[in-house]
Design a protein around this nucleic acid. Sequence first.
DNA 1: CTCCTTTAATTGCGGACACAACTATTGTAG
DNA 2: CTACAATAGTTGTGTCCGCAATTAAAGGAG
Lengths: 150, 150
Amino acid sequence: MATWLTASEMRAWRSFIESVSTLMAALENDLAPFGLNNGDYEVLVRLSEADDQRLRMCDLACALHLSPSGLTRRLDGLVKGGLVERVASPTDRRVMYAALTPAGRTKLTEAAPDHVASVRNRFFKGMTKDQIRELGDIFEKMRDNLAAST
Amino acid sequence: MATWLTASEMRAWRSFIESVSTLMAALENDLAPFGLNNGDYEVLVRLSEADDQRLRMCDLACALHLSPSGLTRRLDGLVKGGLVERVASPTDRRVMYAALTPAGRTKLTEAAPDHVASVRNRFFKGMTKDQIRELGDIFEKMRDNLAAST
DNA sequence: CTCCTTTAATTGCGGACACAACTATTGTAG
DNA sequence: CTACAATAGTTGTGTCCGCAATTAAAGGAG
């Protein structure tokens, strides 16, 4: 166990780090024509996948790895844009739901095909099926690993 | 090509995105005892690898994918901490060099082993040699791909 | 040499986010 | 029932960073 990375590790690590920052910027750029950024898009996706197209603020924050305040302000923007609305819970008055509006759903259906193409073009481009599966194996394990060490 | 991701792509993509955000937070956390964050650490590494342990601001900004203003302020912090100093170029008076100080070099030698251990523990944990090589192949290609499409 | 363009760095401004403090509501121990 | 603890969300404050404007210097065309 050396105190430094092996050449192979270094190659993987450096290219990974480099790719991540460039990739995120590129995806964000591809979403810009729709007036969305990555964070907004993720909110819309999560809401669209939820029952009744709505989620409690705290659950949404957790899913997006956002702090409560971060989510509050992100939602402010989406609410101002009419894509999401805040709905008070009738059963628990502490709770606010973030709910997808029809405009939000429309926006997502507009943006999704481009976003998917963008992910294919930036991320999966040139990967074989085997590599994609391998990547899934690696990062699922990493995700679980990271979740366990929290 | 469908407008949606295949199950295999989705698995890879979701776990990748999830891992990235958690991973970065974990690495940052591991560096905190040294009073550094990821960005600071990256600056120190780049400078330590450079000739004379110094780089022009613009080259450093480019290497780190930071905007000029972003680098200026990041350096402000490191300069205040005594880890880096600004050195004017004698040949081109527009240019400022960011130069590693002895204290900066010391800090890096202190932090590096922990950081490497952190990368091994968070990122490479449980990966086979083959997977590491495969990961290098995939992300080197992605990096080149992304650089080409800019 | 003079003017114009390009390059390097900084500063003003605004956006996004985390932490901590606060309010409001709910759950729970006694 | 009352008091305390836990939970949900918002707001104040500070940090990090990008964009646009600015300053300063170097390079190039005529």
